[in-house]
């Protein structure tokens, strides 16, 4: 029974309803963790993993077609490259502006502590890492689940031949 459901896409109606109700909140929580990563527990890694979990939740609940509409493979690959390039681009900009690789060029004063912009480039780094982790983990899950469907198709073919 579950096999048919996972191939044709989606679980039962109950799971879909709960998923719709919950997914936005998890997404917003992930974004919060990324943006306030330098002021509270969290950061690029935790936020990125939670954002990836949102997409995997949608993939498991609604099946392959729905997630391909939201996030095609090309777009996921693009987002991952964007994260890596953003990380490196900021690092090169720091080299150009301040003369040292990975040196924070946005100065922070004691008055600006505990504000959103107090971290300078740390905020941009967090966003870059979150993008990278999110797209990368999502891609790997997508490929693994696709392969499973193909494998089951092969088994069916073999059974039919016999």
């Amino acid at each position: 029974m579950t096999e048919n459901n996972s191939v044709s896409g989606g679980m039962s109606e109950l799971v879909k309803t709960v998923c719709v109700a919950v997914e936005e909140f998890i997404f917003v929580f992930g974004c919060y963790l990324v943006i306030y990563g330098h002021l509270s527990p969290g950061g690029g890694f935790a936020g990125g993993v939670i954002l990836a979990a949102v997409f995997i939740l949608i993939m498991l609940a609604f099946g392959k077609e729905r997630i391909l509409k939201i996030m095609p493979r090309k777009r996921a690959a693009f987002i991952e490259s964007l994260g890596a390039l953003l990380f490196l681009a900021v690092a090169w900009a720091e080299l150009y502006i301040s003369g040292i690789f990975f040196r924070n060029f946005i100065p922070s004063s004691a008055a600006g502590h505990f504000k959103l912009m107090s971290g300078g480039t740390i905020l941009i780094y967090n966003i870059a890492i979150a993008l990278k982790v999110m797209a990368g983990l999502f891609l790997v899950f997508f490929v693994l689940s696709i392969t499973r469907v193909i494998l089951e198709g092969d088994k069916l073919k073999m059974v039919k031949k016999q």
Partner: peptide, 23 residues
């Protein structure tokens, strides 16, 4: 913090190898 995320990626790599071997 970095090692945990790498651990997940390596686990995915190992599982991919296992899937391929099973196939």
């Amino acid at each position: 913090l970095t090692a945990i995320v790498i651990g997940l990626a390596v686990t995915a790599l190992l599982v991919a190898l296992c899937v391929r071997i099973y196939e």
